[in-house]
Lab assay of single mutants.
Amino acid sequence: MQRVNMIMAESPGLITICLLGYLLSAECTVFLDHENANKILNRPKRYNSGKLEEFVQGNLERECMEEKCSFEEAREVFENTERTTEFWKQYVDGDQCESNPCLNGGSCKDDINSYECWCPFGFEGKNCELDVTCNIKNGRCEQFCKNSADNKVVCSCTEGYRLAENQKSCEPAVPFPCGRVSVSQTSKLTRAETVFPDVDYVNSTEAETILDNITQSTQSFNDFTRVVGGEDAKPGQFPWQVVLNGKVDAFCGGSIVNEKWIVTAAHCVETGVKITVVAGEHNIEETEHTEQKRNVIRIIPHHNYNAAINKYNHDIALLELDEPLVLNSYVTPICIADKEYTNIFLKFGSGYVSGWGRVFHKGRSALVLQYLRVPLVDRATCLRSTKFTIYNNMFCAGFHEGGRDSCQGDSGGPHVTEVEGTSFLTGIISWGEECAMKGKYGIYTKVSRYVNWIKEKTKLT
């Protein structure tokens, strides 16, 4: 034993070699072989497995989906700052455009905790909710729209109204504003409101030439003092309507412009014939205590009207009353817009006519005020429907199939267009061939041609 100890002390290297040989010859039971080890760690190889990531292109799944990435790591994937920024906006807080917040056709661009709407022409605001041009839906104005110097929408209202708090709607500024039905039992019968379409306001006024200088022999019209197929109006439903009495009662109609003036057809009036105007009328054979009678003290036909040349060209006249009318729910003026808007309103496509005229061709006159909704007829169809001249200051309205029309005794009465609950004068009943005849239409004086003249002559002093 002493000898062994001496050998170990003198030859430590020998001992180490012996131990190493023993270990190498022993069977290893701690580690699995290569094949079995792979069965336990069965993990798919990654895209760049075996390579240094710093030297390969980034992978979106590896960089940002398996674990949260930084902007720089995302930049490695896209290799483009702009594309990385677009991805980053949604990656950080989701897609803010998912709810489609942009209105009126706006395009949404996502941002971090926010979004941006790219608005089409005519709109602005956070969600493109603000109209900035009158060309689109009248700028959301209830009545009139004008573009300011910086191309912003400025709404306005006709006389007797003021802008509401929203700067879009119009509200009454006087007790009985024009064009409004205020009798409670008839307010439910107000005709369907007309909503502004998209309009090209630059070209809204037709490029028409008034044929002022045409000389033409007097034409022989049949029954051209021209509501057939209409309905009984309720008291106060058309408070701007008046009836004219002269040699015979209810020979023509008219509309209240203001307390002192009536507008009617020029062919209705004769110099030297006494005319009485009755406002607030409903049943011409009954006294309903809503009527107001006034005498006409002055007749002003349009300066281009000449019955000797043509009885229905420039067929418009103004009547001055001896005493002002007292405005109330049964006696209310009709609204008159400017030339541009009167023309736009007419193009809405349908209007209402009213009167006490004959209820059928050569038949009896109506006792109760009649009204009828009539569609506008395109000019080409209008011209083809008659052998008589249709001037540019006239328009056609009615039904091709016949059966409904204005008729004798309705002449001078109103053709009105309702705009968001307020009625505007767009025409004056003038003439036609018979009444409600198939293929024939009622012919009306186009008020847009005469609004400046009306307003100039009827100013209240």
Rank of each mutant, 00 (worst) to 15 (best):
Q2G: 15
N5M: 13
M8C: 14
G13W: 05
I15E: 02
I15Y: 05
I17L: 12
C18K: 01
L20S: 00
E27C: 04
F31I: 15
L32S: 13
N36R: 09
K45Q: 12
Y47K: 04
N48L: 12
N48F: 05
E54C: 04
V56F: 05
L60W: 05
E61G: 10
E73N: 10
E76I: 13
V77S: 13
E86I: 15
K89I: 06
Q96M: 14
Q96T: 06
C97Q: 02
P101W: 03
C102W: 00
G105F: 08
S107I: 03
C108Q: 01
N113V: 10
E116F: 14
E116I: 05
C117Q: 01
W118K: 15
P120I: 07
G122A: 06
L130Y: 10
T133Y: 14
N138G: 08
Q143S: 00
S148F: 07
K152F: 09
G160Q: 04
G160H: 04
R162N: 12
L163M: 05
K168S: 04
S169P: 00
C170W: 01
E171W: 07
C178R: 00
V181K: 07
V183L: 08
V183Y: 10
V183W: 11
Q185M: 08
L189P: 12
T190G: 10
R191S: 13
R191I: 13
V195T: 07
N203L: 08
A207T: 14
T209M: 12
T218E: 09
D223H: 09
D223R: 10
G230L: 13
D232Y: 13
Q241V: 09
Q241M: 11
L244Q: 00
L244W: 01
N245S: 06
G246E: 03
K247W: 06
V248C: 04
D249Q: 02
A250R: 08
V257L: 06
K260Y: 06
W261H: 01
A265L: 02
A266Y: 03
C268F: 01
V269W: 03
V269M: 08
V269R: 02
T271D: 03
V278C: 04
G280Q: 02
N283M: 10
I284D: 06
E285Y: 06
E286N: 09
E286H: 09
E286V: 07
E288M: 05
H289Q: 07
N306A: 07
A307V: 07
Y312P: 03
I316M: 04
A317K: 01
L318R: 00
E320F: 01
E323K: 08
L325Y: 03
V326R: 09
N328P: 02
V331E: 00
T332F: 04
P333V: 00
A337P: 03
T342R: 01
F345S: 00
K347F: 05
G351A: 12
V353I: 15
S354H: 05
W356N: 03
G363M: 11
G363A: 05
Y371R: 13
V374G: 02
P375W: 06
V377L: 12
T386H: 11
T389G: 12
I390R: 10
N393Y: 06
F395C: 02
F399R: 04
G402I: 11
G402W: 15
G402C: 07
R404S: 15
C407T: 05
Q408M: 11
G409T: 07
H415Y: 08
S423D: 03
E434S: 10
M437G: 14
K438R: 15
G439L: 03
K440A: 07
G442T: 11
G442R: 09
Y444V: 07
V447P: 03
R449W: 11
W453F: 05
E456H: 06
K457Q: 05
T461P: 09
